[in-house]
């Protein structure tokens, strides 16, 4: 759809804002609706839009498979890592209270990190899944 002039231009304009919005949702999950998962989906959706308009090949150049693969694992590892941090700092698994000097900021920090982990994995997974589907069609067709 590279040739699709109107779409291409519109997407170009819109894309940074979609990504921005995704990260906004990521970091404001504490205050309003949203959070890591939603952010991940939106972020992934942005890439999907890009792949739709610019083709899967270009999208793969932007987000190479090995990076995505690492990110998928990294998000989950971050989450579990936070859990272990709680454990090593003397609390239970996933205990955020011990992450910082006072429980409330510890909780806040924990939630932030955990949500970040969710966001990363979800976004990477969404991208992988879509790429897998879309690339399949092209190769087989």
């Amino acid at each position: 759809m590279q040739r699709h002039l109107v779409l291409r231009v519109t997407t170009k304009l819109l894309m940074p804002f979609i990504l921005l919005f995704a990260l906004y949702v990521q970091f404001h999950g504490d205050f309003g609706p949203g959070g890591g998962f939603q952010a991940g989906v939106i972020f992934g959706a942005g890439f999907i839009l890009y792949a739709l308009v610019y083709g899967i090949k270009n999208a793969r150049l932007v987000a190479p498979d090995y990076v995505i693969r690492v990110l998928i694992a990294a998000g989950l590892l971050l989450y579990i890592g936070v859990g272990f941090a709680g454990l090593f700092l003397g609390g239970k698994f996933l205990d955020y209270n011990v992450l910082a000097s006072d429980p409330v900021s510890g909780q806040h920090l924990g939630i932030l990190l955990v949500e970040l982990g969710v966001g990363v994995t979800v976004a990477a997974t969404m991208i992988t899944v879509f790429f897998a589907f879309a690339a399949r069609g092209r190769d087989e067709g």
Binding site: Q2, L52, I56
Partner: peptide, 20 residues
């Protein structure tokens, strides 16, 4: 918006990965 684009791409090319 994204959904509509996907739909249209599907309708036009019958697949979602082709850049044309």
């Amino acid at each position: 918006f994204i959904g509509t684009i996907a739909v249209l791409k599907f309708l036009k090319f019958g697949d979602l990965g082709t850049p044309g």
